[in-house]
């Protein structure tokens, strides 16, 4: 039994503000296109079944798990990955800073997906309460932190982006 050869398809998309293209098999997953063709390895693979969210990217204004999307499905799309999150001057964005200040990460493997999800969450709801944050990130698994400091990291970022003060410390 051999697999029939399928022709490759040309895809073009904008990733982190740069237009990229590639000649891909129709079955190539977006996460592999990002990680292997574009060499943007910050987007991770943790389960291949869209449970863990380590592969979350921002796709045309939505949080999407890139392990269950084909690259050919997003032809023409606008994508942002963790590599596009820092401020233009290279400093950490409010969310990245929040994760560091609030100890919202340990092994760092879920962190890019978590930050990408939090980024979209704060666009949808700039001032979420704890319950809304917990619901908002429930598609992203973390095995290290127990989420408590991730919630604080997102609150920290929300406060910073809203120009208000966040007084709590990581715990």
């Amino acid at each position: 039994m051999t697999t029939p050869q399928i022709g490759k398809i040309h895809v073009t998309m904008t990733v982190n503000g740069t237009q990229v293209d590639g000649l891909v098999e129709p079955r190539l997953l977006l996460v592999h296109f990002i990680r292997e063709n574009l060499q943007l390895t910050g987007t991770h693979i943790g389960c291949e079944t869209s449970h863990c969210g380590a592969c979350t990217v921002d796709l045309d204004g939505m949080s999407v798990k890139s392990c269950t999307v084909f690259a050919v499905q997003v032809d023409g799309a606008n994508i942002m990955t963790i590599e596009g999150m820092a401020n233009a001057d290279g400093t950490l964005s409010a969310l990245q800073e929040g994760f560091r200040m609030m100890h919202g990460l340990q092994c760092g493997f879920c962190t890019p997906g978590m930050i990408m999800r939090a980024h979209r969450l704060l666009k949808e709801n700039p001032n979420p309460n704890e319950e809304e944050i917990r619901f908002g990130i429930s598609g992203n698994l973390c095995r290290c932190t127990g989420y408590q400091n991730i919630v604080k990291a997102i609150q920290y970022a929300a406060a910073k982006l809203n120009g208000t003060e966040f007084k709590e410390a990581a715990e």
Binding site: G42, T81, M85, L92, L105, G108
Partner: peptide, 21 residues
């Protein structure tokens, strides 16, 4: 000291270096 983590600078920017990378 509640020192902030050194590792986080790379991890928060997707610049960790894991085996599959």
């Amino acid at each position: 000291c509640r020192r902030k983590r050194v590792e986080d600078i790379r991890f928060t920017q997707g610049k960790g270096n894991y085996v599959d990378d």
